[in-house]
Amino acid sequence: MQTFIDAYSWLNLRYLLQGLWVTVEVSVISVILSFILGTILGVIRYSEIKYFSAIVGFVIDLIRNLPLLLIIFFTYFGLPNLGFKPPVIAAAIIAMTVFESMMIAEIVRSGIIAIDKGQMEGAQSNGIGYWTALRIVVLPQAMKNMVPALVSQFISLIKDTSLGTIIVLPEMMYHAQIIYGQNTNYIIPMFVALAVLYFIVCYALSLVGKYFERRLA
């Protein structure tokens, strides 16, 4: 018990919360960027544009199937070879965005497919162009069905930021490791704190998702 009280000193908690702030920062930016990029890629993948869609599909499959840990690692250590040396946070955001976009592209593509084909044809026969029909008729409906899958993916994303410890991203998991480095007995209190803090953030996102699901239904 005393261990828990010592481990949760204000100093340690503050340090952990500083880590949480980086986690949230990286997550929010990556969620926004990967949602935009993922939607675009998903639409391209769906549209079957000659060659282009096939190439995009190939890239999606390749990146989606690699462990994110390695993508983060190679982003940080590979990009300098191309003449760009990103800071740790930028490298983490780039890697997360690239990877999560591919996951989201797959969700978006399947969401569009699940919408009745007749709607697209109906809209087009009413004189609306292909892209406009996609944008104002099909995508909004597809989004509704995609909400649960998207929320699951974003929850994964938030927790996956902890993989950034491999390149010493100062997020919550890394800060927890530094804290229990001071005293090995703090490890269990830190894991409990991690569970609670991640739960709060992810559950909040889950509630937002449920809200959208109801509203769009």
Partner: peptide, 11 residues
């Protein structure tokens, strides 16, 4: 679902 989806796998 909400408990196990929202805490880290490592924990």
């Amino acid at each position: 679902v909400e408990v196990f989806r929202n805490i880290p796998l490592l924990v």
